[in-house]
Nucleic acid binder design. Structure first.
Lengths: 193, 193
DNA sequence: TTTGATTGCAAGTACTTGCTTGCATATATT
DNA sequence: AATATATGCAAGCAAGTACTTGCAATCAAA
């Protein structure tokens, strides 16, 4: 990937984050990238091609790879906190906005499989973790896929809601949310300790 | 609200759901509403005015009012299931798509406070419910706002992810998710029963 | 029957959109 | 020195955009 093409991609993704795919114009992209508009079409087939090349780059999916969740201690509370923290460190409000900006119908059929990689990494890493915990006898048997979905939904939901409404919806801060919700997941409401 | 204006609003909201605000054209709206394009501008100031009038209508926010959550039995498991079920009954994939379609920067400053009403109703109803449960001695004291946020995040997250990726992300169905996650919230992972 | 309001219709305005073209210039490679 | 590649620049195109205007038809209230 030559430097000019990368500048174009970066500009395009940044604008899609701010304005959405449809409202992002090729003139905008060219200006922000500091190149002439016709250069976009020498490097890429069309506007859609620019953005699709962008999503294919890991850096534009928050660099959320399976390695991120490798650092486990086989201790439920601290490991769940680690999963949630690492996710929120990478899936910042900007990335949430980007993934919403990518949801134009002209694009979504092709972008969805790439966007979906991010939750998939979290979910499958967590499910694998639970399986190993069960086989180590550190967790009772359960519907692990469903359990992972509960925890991921909550992590995703909080991340998304914070990006959308900041603290106007709920005053609960990130650290507090992680600590408390992990306690709830592990011990439940009835035996909160 | 006269019949013509309502037809225009309904057409506009339906198109915003499918294509997003920016990609929805006034020609599209007129055609779907079955009126002439100039009629839109006799009834409303401009395109934005149509959509903002739409979000102000309860029917375009899923009719999610506080009454929806009034039917509690003061029994934790069944009540939490009721909260989640009622939310998911109303906030269908179509409503999730609509709320994403409304996130154009030209609009979001004015639409966000209205869109936010939906999560606010769930959150405050659930927090109030928890307070009453504690005072009835049916639940231990805890950080109730945070607990409500955990449960709402999870409900919202599952709803949103299902609308976005259907069952491609996780095979866990709605009823199973609700049942199992409520069990986790109440009893926790460690004393799953 | 007259009046007033609502709407359709056809045309048009000023502007923006994605994308192209032909040519000049700079820079790097041979 | 000769050549190839990358880019800028200026202009343009066809199509689409939100929104407007003037006039005629309809229809219900007076």
């Amino acid at each position: 990937m030559d430097e000019t093409s990368q500048k174009i991609i970066d500009a395009a993704m940044s604008l899609v984050k701010d304005k959405g795919y449809v409202a992002t114009t090729t003139r905008d992209i060219a200006q922000l990238a500091g190149v002439n508009e016709c250069t976009l079409f020498r490097k890429f087939k069309n506007k859609k091609d620019i953005v699709l090349n962008g999503i294919e780059q890991e850096k534009w999916r928050g660099n959320l790879t399976p390695d991120v969740f490798k650092n486990v201690k086989w201790e439920l509370a601290s490991d769940l906190e680690m999963f949630m923290t690492e996710y929120m460190n990478r899936i910042t409000p900007d990335f949430v906005k980007l993934s919403i900006g990518l949801r134009a119908p002209q694009l979504y059929g092709e972008s969805a499989p790439l966007v979906m990689k991010v939750p998939q990494v979290f979910l499958s890493s967590l499910t694998d973790y639970f399986k190993e915990m069960v086989s180590r006898g550190k967790m009772p048997e359960a519907d692990l896929e469903c359990l992972a979905m509960t925890i991921f939904s909550s992590t995703f939901g909080y991340t998304f809601l914070s990006a959308s409404f900041e603290n106007h919806l709920s005053p609960v801060g990130r650290e507090e949310f992680i600590k408390q919700s992990v306690q709830t997941f592990i011990y439940g409401i009835t035996q909160k300790q």
